[in-house]
């Protein structure tokens, strides 16, 4: 029964990883940028939610309505102000600039909030659970998983069914020709980063309600998201959900065997999949 429980907890945790991965995958798909600061931005969103919910006395889930547009706006400004300047075709500038950004965010958070672990108070949600077949399932993890599925379905819809998604794919295919069609790539990239950070905001708030966080944990979240992307296969949004679930289950089972093995087990499964299927389980993109 413990094992069954661990697997279910792992699946639900996978939803969080999938949200982290989807934001990463989205911007890589549109502009071939890997954002090293992605994890730190998640933590930034969690701190923003913390501040907002303390100041306004609102539940973290309500604060979402505030933090999501804030992060989206920040993403757009960041892209147009700094990151567009790094997209010269060379892989070094975007990597090193987002790496610098990661250090800046981490230390700014440290300065503002100290290194003490914090947690978003989700009230009754924190402990509420339902019992199914003798296994107790927390309402919060369940909600987190449902939101993750909805976020990925939403991104999938935007990407393949809307004019914005068409613009994303056109710019990703050929920037010059897209520009001829009236699409300003700098603006399109800005919108892609805004969407990515909107997803980051959702992920950050659920992360903050589920576990405690401090300014240093961003790098670890980036790695989990990245592993979910690679496991699922590059360029496949639903693949990131599968990747997230596999990673979550691996960690959960590892932790069940030995608490020290939780994160390690996730990395090992990732490396195994990399060794056996280097392009991930459901690759879509060719590079």
């Amino acid at each position: 029964m413990d094992w069954m429980n661990a697997i279910i907890q792992g699946i639900l945790l996978g939803g969080l990883y999938a949200m982290i991965a989807a934001g990463l995958s989205l911007i890589f798909g549109v502009m071939r940028l890997v954002n090293i600061a992605h994890g730190d931005l998640i933590i930034l969103a969690a701190y923003l939610a913390l501040t907002a919910s303390m100041l306004l006395g609102l539940h973290p889930l309500l604060v979402l309505l505030l933090v999501v547009p804030m992060m989206a706006l920040f993403g757009y400004v960041l892209q147009r102000g700094i990151l567009n300047g790094t997209l010269t075709g060379d892989i070094l500038p975007p990597l090193l600039v987002t790496f610098g950004l990661s250090v800046i965010i981490q230390n700014a958070l440290l300065e503002a909030y100290s290194a003490d672990p914090q947690k978003l108070d989700s009230g009754v949600l924190d402990t509420a659970s339902m019992t199914m077949g003798g296994i107790s399932i927390g309402i919060l993890p369940l909600l987190m998983f449902a939101v993750a599925v909805a976020v990925i379905a939403g991104l999938q819809f935007i990407f393949y069914r809307t004019a914005l998604g068409r613009a994303f794919r056109a710019v990703s295919d050929n920037q010059d020709i897209a520009q001829l069609m009236g699409l300003n790539r700098r603006h399109v990239f800005g919108l892609a980063m805004a969407l990515s950070l909107a997803v980051v905001a959702v992920a950050g708030i659920f992360l903050g309600m589920r576990t405690s966080f401090d300014p240093s944990v961003g790098g670890g979240r980036l790695i989990f998201g990245f592993e979910a992307v690679i496991i699922g296969g590059l360029g496949n949004l639903w693949g990131t959900l599968v990747g997230g679930v596999i990673l979550g289950v691996a960690q959960s089972i590892g932790g069940q065997i030995n608490p020290g093995w939780q994160v390690l087990a996730g990395h090992v499964v990732f490396l195994l999949i990399l060794a056996i299927k280097p392009r991930g389980l459901f690759p879509r993109m060719t590079d």
């Binding site: 890997v34 090293i36 670890g220 980036l222 790695i223 690679i230 390690l264 090992v268 490396l271 990399l274």
Partner: peptide, 20 residues
Amino acid sequence: LIFRLRGAYFAIGTWVIAEV
């Protein structure tokens, strides 16, 4: 193992190794 990853994904792959 990690030479299977290209470019920026190679970078994060090296980080995973360090974490392992």
